[in-house]
Design a protein around this nucleic acid. Structure first.
Lengths: 193, 193
DNA sequence: CAATGAATATAACAACTGTTATGATAATTT
DNA sequence: AAATTATCATAACAGTTGTTATATTCATTG
């Protein structure tokens, strides 16, 4: 579908501007300039700026979710959980850009309940996936039975988000290898004695 | 000093507007209106908006740091580390607002290296404090000697930031009690066998 | 080929932004 | 008491914003 492709082009141009210049400097005109065209294109595919922002935010979460499902396709056991969570870490340039855009969106959502609700929506969906994974690992007696999946899912996602943030705000951040080690070590701590 | 008091008033008014309406809607006029006065006050105590933003950001981190030092004053051992890190968790309304403002600033700093450098500055200072604390605990043989303080400090701060974020973006977030349990449990895992 | 509609450009709109200059008033200092 | 300065209000500025309307070009369809 060519229409959808063009919408994606606009959305990705928006990403680039956001990561490079910040969300508040990402105007309709700046996005158009990034695409080497005029605002006519942008306004033709998106009614509002809010519709554009929302679409771009959905693209961020959707892309992460797809890349996760690809990675875990042929894995099982604890490795599978590690891979699931690792797929959200900013291990390469693309995911670093996604993280930047995501943080920009999150900051923008402060004081905007409709946008914050979107974040909670996607975070909630992801949380459910993790909960199910933990339940499955418990049934397989791979992780301890005294773990509450409903809580541990929050902790695991918190660890991933925190480690991701670390790469943004720390002058001496964890290296990609260290990030994965941290995650792996924590999860191996959940294993049956 | 009355001058400084008035600057703080402006800064705190800015906080309230940011948490309520978002950073991009926090204009000079909005801040003035929040103080029930005109922009003359705002411009009199701050040259630029950037100077105001930077001052408010400093206030956020400074307030957190002071409250931390108060809490840990008469503590020692592992409890001290737990208390240090807990003081950054959004356990009450005030710290929840601080978190919101902090996230708004962080998102605003994406694409603005000068502002991001400020974040890295304060994060780096905090990290050093944690590293020193870990070294001290190692010397007292309270935590394991195979732990690398330089890395573990990042992990601990990542966990705190992640758990804090959890309360913002999860529909079913960890309760204040659970947040502290998570932290306490992780730190007790660092103890000497 | 004609016609319909999509795709893009251009321009104008009012609203809002940070900044600055200018007054007016109150407080402090000399 | 006079003078100076801090404090605050008001107004105007140029620039930017999202939005909208209109015009033009192009492709598709009947």
């Amino acid at each position: 579908m060519a229409q959808n492709d063009r919408r994606l082009e606009v959305s990705e141009a928006a990403w680039r501007v956001i990561a490079r210049e910040g969300l508040d400097r990402t105007s309709m005109r700046a996005i158009a300039q990034e695409m080497d065209c005029t605002t006519g294109v942008v306004t033709h595919y998106f009614r509002n700026k809010q519709e554009l922002i929302l679409f771009a935010l959905h693209q961020v979460t959707a892309r992460l979710q797809v890349s996760m499902e690809v990675v875990i396709a042929d894995l099982s056991g604890a490795d599978r959980l590690v891979a699931m969570l690792s797929s959200f870490l900013p291990l390469d340039r693309e995911r670093q850009e996604i993280l930047q855009v995501w943080i920009a969106f999150l900051g923008y959502a402060v004081g905007r309940e409709e946008l914050m609700a979107e974040h909670r929506q996607s975070a909630g969906e992801l949380r459910i996936v993790i909960v199910q994974e933990l339940v499955a690992l418990q049934k397989q007696q791979i992780i301890r039975s005294d773990i509450d999946p409903a809580i541990e899912a929050n902790v695991l996602l918190a660890l991933v988000n925190g480690v991701s943030l670390d790469t943004l705000i720390q002058a001496q951040p964890l290296s990609p290898e260290q990030q994965q080690v941290v995650l792996q070590r924590y999860i191996s701590g959940l294993a049956c004695n």
